[in-house]
Write a protein that binds this DNA or RNA. Structure first.
Length: 467
RNA sequence: GGCCCUAUCGUCUAACGGCUAGGACACAUGGUUCUCAUCCAUGAAAUCGGGGUUCGAUUCCCCGUAGGGUCACCA
């Protein structure tokens, strides 16, 4: 499932929830040649990840029967026979070679291909072995209303004798979706703009079957990074579950997906799922296509990460840590949990935490750091020796200090640091504890390490300078 | 080629005829900070072109231009 398909599902879900409607996951598996093993499970997993739960689906049939079209062949056959009986459908007598020839002629003469120009005068009884074509009863200009695009219309060139039942007994999408919408009580048809052109064909079918039209909602296309072409695999369109694996939150993905092609107006852009349900409306769906902005998705993930509970943050963080970190000598879940809470805000994505861990950014929490002693020298100092008395003093201050919180540790050292110079004191302290040029502040480091390790590392740094 | 759709900062978009065209992401600069990140402030950045209607057009109409869709025993 790619971004575009998921967004369509999301909009349908939001609209259904907002209006106390029913959300049905219908599997349109009428092309057995293109069927891919496991794709239904994959679709269900994708929708489940985003929390788009269906009222009826492949695993939950309704009163209307199965949600798999391949289980419903008798129903399509019944409606097809109705059209045959009315004289509105007939078997296609041509071979595929002949059809190909007709199309070729049309292209060469620069006119649209219309099967109805080749409609036979007489035909045999339909026995199910030949494709069944709909005999469009009235060739005319069709007008219809679209909730997003407004009033639309198309000329006679768009009406044709389309195939409704294939030679293998399966219906085409063009026919099956209309029958199922009727049988399942579907009220709203939301789909991409590629279906605008074929809508007149559908309208003529509704008329022939004497059923009411649904409400049409055309969704804008999602474009590739260049903003011009429709998003495709070639542009790096990813499967939805790849985003899951990278650590994106479903809430962030829903938020971003919802805002790609729709917006509630106003300046706020960060919404929870329930806010989206509450605000969603068809009249604010965008007309023109837009690119799916991955940078903004990252930003949204960061925002949604903030509203995670402490427990959730810890498991998100631990889940992101690679084996190389988890096998460090001092690694423990407790230690990782302490680290998670303070380091969490620095990352926007699980992938970033993993990468940071892989280059050793968090190793100080689980093993004694190794570093060049020259790193202990503050940039304004002339020699490394100047750091020694300061570290010794900090060691003394921390021996009896309160280690119950970051703030408590800070207050034990702060006065001395302000008197002596913050960089002069805090830089060597931070390096002594982390062994790194870049790290969280020294009070946070000391809090996570605890008094014993903190004092050992400061003493070790002093030894390095003296030795 | 026929039919159809679309057009505001680089990107996503707001402004349902009327403030200096607003916000977000990204970008740049400055500030806070021992470092990195965060955070805060500031800045640069747009109505595709041409007509028309109107006191007044991003908005309504027409023509161009550009982009997109569609013309399957695919959905």
């Amino acid at each position: 499932m790619h971004i575009g398909g998921v967004r369509t599902a999301l909009y349908a879900y939001l609209y259904a929830k907002k209006n106390n409607g029913t959300f049905i996951l219908r599997i349109e598996d009428t092309d057995k040649n293109r069927e891919v093993d496991g794709s239904i499970a994959h679709i269900m997993e994708s929708l489940s990840w985003l929390g788009l739960t269906w009222d009826f689906g492949p695993d939950k049939p309704g009163l209307f029967g199965s949600c798999l079209q391949s289980d419903r062949l008798d129903i399509y056959k019944k409606y097809a026979q109705q059209l045959v009986d009315k004289g509105l459908a007939y078997p296609d007598p041509y071979t595929s070679e002949q059809l190909e020839q007709f199309r070729k002629e049309a292209t060469e003469e620069k006119r649209p291909f219309l099967f109805r120009k080749h409609r036979p005068d007489t035909y045999e009884t339909w026995d199910g072995t030949k494709p069944l074509r709909f005999k469009v009863p009235e060739v005319k200009r069709y007008k219809w209303h679209d909730e997003v695009r407004g009033d639309l219309s198309a000329g006679e060139e768009m009406l044709d004798d389309i195939i409704i039942m294939k030679a293998d007994g399966y219906p085409t999408y063009n026919f099956a979706h209309i029958i199922d919408d009727l049988e399942m009580g579907v009220t709203h048809v939301m789909r991409g703009e590629e279906f605008i052109a074929s809508t007149p064909k559908f309208l003529s079918l509704y008329d022939a079957l004497e059923i009411a039209r649904p409400i049409f909602v055309t969704l804008p296309p999602i474009m590739g990074p260049d903003g011009k072409k429709k998003l495709s695999k070639r542009d790096g369109a990813k499967d939805l579950l790849e985003y899951k694996n990278e650590g994106y939150l479903p809430a962030a993905m829903n938020n971003m997906l919802a805002l790609t092609g729709w917006n509630p107006g106003g300046n706020n852009e960060i919404f929870t799922m329930s806010e989206l349900v509450e605000k969603f409306s068809l009249d604010r769906i965008q007309r023109s296509g837009g690119a799916f902005n991955e940078e903004k998705l990252l930003h949204m993930n960061k925002e949604h990460l903030k509203s995670l509970s402490g427990e959730e943050k810890i498991s998100y963080f631990i889940d992101a840590l690679p084996e190389s970190t988890k096998t460090l000598p001092g690694y423990s879940t407790e230690q990782a949990s302490k680290l998670a809470v303070v380091v969490f805000e620095r990352a926007a994505l699980k992938k970033e935490i993993t990468q940071a861990a892989e280059v050793g950014e968090y190793d100080w929490a689980f093993s004694d750091p190794e570093y060049e002693k020259t790193l202990l020298q503050w940039k304004n100092d002339d020699s490394l020796q100047e750091a020694l008395p300061r570290l010794e003093n900090v060691h003394k201050l921390l021996e009896d200090a309160d280690f119950s919180s970051t703030e408590a540790i800070k207050s034990a050292v702060w006065t001395y640091a302000e008197e002596t110079g913050k960089g002069e004191v805090l830089w060597p302290l931070r390096v002594a504890l982390s062994g790194r040029q870049q790290s969280p502040d020294p009070f946070t480091l000391a809090y996570i390490l605890g008094r014993e390790k903190t004092l050992v590392r400061i003493a070790h740094a002093c030894d390095k300078i003296s030795g």
